[in-house]
Amino acid sequence: MRNGWREPSRLAVGGSTLAAVVVLWYLATTFTQIIPPVYFPTPAEVLQAFRQITVQGYADGQLQQHFLHSCWLVLMGFAAAVGLGVPLGMLMGWSRRAEALINPVFLLLRPIPPLAWIPLAIVWLGLGDAAKVLVIWFAAFVPAVINSYAGVRSIEPYLIEAARSLGIRGAMLVREVLFPGALPLIFTGLRLSLQACWTTLVAAELIGAIVGLGHVLYQAGLDLFPAMIVVGMIGVAIAGGLMTTALGRLEAWSMPWHRR
C-alpha cells in the first residue's frame, strides 16, 4: 500500500508469470530458433494442433471426448478408492485387531508401484475402461487407506476420552468424532491419491486405449507430432488442475473450523 501502489493480486502475478513463459517460449522457438522446431513446437504450431484436434479430431476423437473420457475414468477409480479406502483405513486406525489382520497384506502390496499392475489388469480385463479403472483404483487406494489410518491415530486421546465420558458411542462416535478428527489427514491422502490417479491413467492409456488424453499422447508420439504432444500434455495438466482445485474447495468447505 506504500506510495499509493496497491499490492498486486496473486492472480495478476500468476498471470504475468504465465505470459512471460509464453513470450520466452515464442522467443526461443519462433524468433531465435535456439530450440529447433523438430524438438519442441512453436506456439503457432501448438495452436494449430489445438484447432485440429478440437475441430476435426485426432486419435479417434475430438479433444473434448478425450478430455472427458480421461476425467471420467479418474473420477470412477478415485471414487471407488476413496469409498473403500477411507472406511478401511479408519477401521484400521480405530481397531488394533483390524490393523493386525489387514496390515500384513498392506506391507506386501505397498512397495509395488501401481504401474506394475497395468499388465495384469490388461490380462484380466483387456484394453477397455475396466482395466484402467482397476489400475487407477489401486493407485488411489493405498494413500487413501494409509492417511485415513494415520488420521484416526492422530486424534488426541483426550478427545476420544472426552467423547466416551459424554456418553458418545457407536455411529455417533464415528460420524462426529473420529471422522472429523481424521479429516485433515484424510484430505492429505485424497490429494496424493488424485495425483497418483492421473499418473497411472496416462501410463495406462499410453499402453493401450481407444480414447483418452494418454492415447492422444501415444498417437502423437507415433506420428512424430510434437505440437500435438504438447496439446495432450496441457490437456492432462488442466484436467488434473481442475480436479485438484475442486478437491481443495471441498476441503475448505467441509472443514470450516480448520485453521490454516
Binding site: 483426550y158 476420552e161 467423547a163 472429523p180 478428527g181
Partner: peptide, 11 residues
C-alpha cells in the same frame, strides 16, 4: 470429566 486440555471438539 473436565480435562486440563479442555478437550473441546474443534469441529
Amino acid at each position: 470429566v473436565v480435562f486440563q486440555q479442555f478437550a473441546l471438539f474443534p469441529w
